[in-house]
Design a protein around this nucleic acid. Structure first.
Lengths: 145, 145
DNA sequence: TGAACAAAAGATAAAAATGTCTTTTAATAA
DNA sequence: TTATTAAAAGACATTTTTATCTTTTGTTCA
């Protein structure tokens, strides 16, 4: 299994793609985004609808319409995307799936995975949606392949 | 999403349960294990069949039969269970699902998640199946609830 | 206004993960 | 050697995830 669901992988890649275009002042259509991150177009449309409803990204319909990201959203951490799509199980759940796992009733991996979960959260919380724009413009970073 | 699949959560909990009973010289039946780790009995049976085929655990049929774990298997790392059930995507895969993500063609999260993947692998590799037996006997650690 | 465009929404489909049921095989003990 | 026990195996069912198709809504521009 991967760390994130496929849906969440698409979501993060798409949001970073939109962010990168937004800093260039460009609104992007779903077709463009799907091609830019190599994802199924119609499935991605559903995901972006959801993110749009949740206020993480913006969209306008019609000619010259498309998706974009506001400056305030550019400053939001990646953990917001993950939480919106996959929930917070990755940050708070027990590695072995126990409902009542905690410091006083720990599963065998409780302490060691607490550290891992914290590190995952930290990485996703420190990095904002806009963090990678420059390197995306430079082509140093990849969102497809 | 959780770190491990539900199947893998059950697998780890079951193997640790069997290990703990094995050090007490007891073979355990599927019913006992399912109750001991609070999992669906028939689904767990499938999982254990698979682990048995792969040599991670042992079983004998018939009266006084059941599952047990050899001393050599007790020394195997938890990562062996995870690899057998969930594969190695967690240890080696790209966080954003890119097939060709690497140091020379990195996704935005490549470096930071490399550290996370390594830490996950390390925790699962350092801890063996037998590591927790004493605390399981003492009741300090939980495998259910 | 109305024609064209593009996202939103709703319905449906396919695939994968999770869970259950039934029959078979192998071991034990009477 | 036969009855009983318990895992193995195979088939089936359900749920969730992933993916697609169609219709609707809202926007722009001629």
């Amino acid at each position: 299994m991967a760390i994130f669901s496929k849906t969440c992988e698409y979501a993060i890649r798409a949001v970073l793609y939109i962010a990168h275009k937004s800093t260039l002042g460009i609104k992007v259509g779903i077709k463009d985004i799907a091609a830019g991150i190599d994802s199924p177009e119609l499935y991605l449309a559903k995901i972006l609808q959801d993110l749009s409803r949740k206020g993480l990204i913006n969209s306008v319909k019609g000619p010259n319409g498309g998706f974009y990201i506001s400056d305030t959203s550019l400053a939001r951490p990646l953990s917001d995307i993950v939480e919106a799509v996959d929930g917070n199980a990755l940050f708070t759940g027990c590695a072995l799936g126990l409902k009542q796992c905690s410091a006083v009733n720990p599963c065998p991996l409780h302490n060691q995975f607490k550290a891992i979960r914290d590190q995952i959260y930290q990485v996703l919380n420190v990095n904002t949606i806009g963090t990678f724009n420059e390197e995306l413009v430079n082509g140093i970073l990849s969102l497809k392949k």
